Simulated assay, not measured.
Amino acid sequence: MAAREGVDNRRTDTRERALAVALELFATHGYTVTSLREIAEHLGVTKAALYFHFRTKEEILTAILRGYLDGIAALAVDATARQPLTAAMREELVRRFAEHQAHWGIDLILLVRQNYTEIQSLPIGEEVREVMASLVAALAPAGSGPAERLRVRTALSAFQIAAVTAARDNDGDGDALQEAALAIALEILAG
Rank of each mutant, 00 (worst) to 15 (best):
R96P: 06
F97T: 02
V131M: 03
A102S: 05
G125M: 04
V131F: 03
A102C: 00
E118R: 05
E127G: 02
E127N: 05
L93G: 07
L122Q: 06
Q114C: 12
G105K: 08
D107K: 11
R90S: 14
Q114Y: 09
A87K: 12
E127R: 08
A102I: 01
V112R: 12
L93Q: 13
P84L: 07
I109D: 08
R129T: 14
A81W: 03
V94N: 02
M132P: 00
A88K: 15
I119N: 03
W104Y: 14
A87T: 13
A98Q: 08
S121F: 00
T80N: 13
V131R: 05
R95I: 03
R96V: 01
Q120D: 11
Q120S: 13
H100K: 10
A87V: 14
A79L: 08
L111V: 09
E91L: 07
A102P: 00
A79M: 08
D78T: 15
R82C: 12
M132F: 06
V112N: 09
I119Q: 03
E91M: 08
I119M: 04
H100Q: 13
L111S: 10
R82P: 04
Q120C: 09
I106Y: 07
V128S: 06
S121R: 10
E99T: 06
Y116F: 04
Y116V: 05
Q120W: 05
S121C: 02
V94P: 04
L110E: 13
V128M: 09
H103V: 00
A88L: 15
V77I: 15
L93P: 09
T86F: 10
E130L: 08
V77G: 12
R113Y: 12
T80G: 13
D107L: 10
Q114H: 14
D78H: 15
E118H: 06
L111M: 14
N115T: 03
M89H: 12
E99M: 05
V128H: 06
A81T: 07
L85H: 12
V112K: 11
R113F: 11
D107V: 10
